[in-house]
Design a protein around this nucleic acid. Structure first.
Lengths: 253, 253
DNA sequence: AAGTGGTCTAGACCACTTG
DNA sequence: AAGTGGTCTAGACCACTTG
């Protein structure tokens, strides 16, 4: 009923389970080296492949990291950076797809590369923007770095009907970013909606993150609405291991 | 610089990449059967293990699913259910750890099992509740089902100083759940903060989800604050493949 | 019965690290 | 030079599916 696959006998799973228990119980502290492949082979009486299979599982769970030539190590979880997701209409920091990440100094993003292009709305983008599929849109793509590492990919999509001939179509939109531009252009910004999913980065994304194995990511779709129209949508792909999304929900009285 | 591991030659990665491209391009529509292991072995001139390794990668990316004895299939992604995360102080639906999932009928959760126990605050819980480590707390644990499948695990932690002798310590808290109880008890509920991370379910969690392989999950920490104190915190572990978290961020004017 | 994916072994080679 | 993890092959067996 519940279980999907039992097929064939299975030695790697109990081995992974035992090591997992030891790591979670603290028998191996973060940074500790685990027994080597040959040691584990001898202990469990299995082949190297079987040990490798077990370790691959633990690695994907984030419990173990590997330094080739040196061994397996209980993982010291990377410091997680809190990304406050707020709705400030104008921010002090330069334009970035951390849109809403906060007006404060904790908005520490290190680098932003911007590509601007024009396109026609796909079915998906059209639905999100509530415009006709095929309508002209402005696409602003960004890559965000932290310490030389790519940590997020983002693409903003705006109806060209709103942006044509405005500063939004230039590389530098000035302080406050796109949102401030929209406000200056007389648009009402009523609310943002953020839809968050999680998954494994696809091939092209994994490549852009510079990882051999596809990392776990958040996918955030941020839809910004005015009084009578959707003003824009941003798709953000964020390395999940590095970030925590933090939402504040004030209680209406 | 960017790449972590190159070691040893590598045949499974390009194979995975090629199949990934075909799936994403639509050459294999969702539900289509992929070539069998023997066919792929012949096409690429590699061993079965190598093909298996490539397919394992695609499966963990969610692009492929496997029906043992039948073959590999391009994945028809499961319908994603939107979980609106709101801050309504009182809801019409029965008490549940979907707390804030909305007052509407779209709150469709199927079943809830509740365990109530008393404990002392761990360092982590104490920090979240802003009480002394070791202080007495009330723990309400829940398992949420949809169609017989476990889809979420949740545990609420409340300072016992707030709950002792109240209806919150009974199994049935009545309509509106814990939050309504707190309001009736005279507490101000000012805001919720939700911190969202994503990861692979740990061993015990994976077991509770009834999965042989640990699934990808959201971890939501929801902290509910009154005017001068934290009223409670809920830890929710949600199957990521089934849900989308949807946050509304109204723009302050 | 024939085909499917999943697991396992034994043995090989590779790139990497430390001495 | 000796030890490490990562990949690969060839061959075996298993549980599962359809006919």
């Amino acid at each position: 009923m519940g279980d999907t696959v039992t097929s064939a006998r299975n030695r790697w799973r109990p081995i992974a389970a035992e090591l997992r228990t030891q790591i979670l119980s603290g028998a191996f502290a973060p940074g500790d080296r685990l027994p080597s492949s040959v040691a584990l082979r001898a202990r469990y009486g299995v082949s190297g492949q079987t040990i490798q299979h077990a370790m691959n599982g633990l690695r994907s769970e984030g419990l173990v990291e590997t330094r080739p030539g040196m061994g397996w190590f209980a993982r010291k979880p990377p410091d997680v950076v809190r990304l406050p997701r707020r709705s400030d209409p104008v921010r002090r920091v330069p334009d970035s797809a951390w849109l809403g990440c906060g007006a404060e100094d904790d908005c520490w993003l290190q680098d932003v590369v911007t590509v601007i292009r024009y396109d026609r709305a796909s079915a998906r983008i059209a639905a999100e923007l509530r415009i006709e599929p095929g309508a002209e849109i402005l696409v602003r793509e960004r890559t965000m770095f932290d310490d030389g590492q790519v940590v997020a990919l983002a693409a903003s999509y705006l109806p060209r009907a709103l942006t044509r001939g405005t500063v939004i179509e230039s590389a530098e939109t000035g302080p406050g970013g796109i949102l401030a531009c929209l406000l200056r252009l007389g648009h009402d910004v009523i609310q943002h909606v953020e839809r968050v999913t999680a998954g494994i980065a696809h091939g092209e994304e994994a490549r852009r993150f510079g990882r051999p194995d596809p990392p776990l990511v958040f996918r955030v779709v941020r839809i910004t609405s005015g009084r009578s129209a959707v003003l824009g949508v941003i798709h953000i792909v964020v390395l999940a291991e590095r970030f925590e999304l933090c939402y504040e929900l004030p209680v209406a009285r």
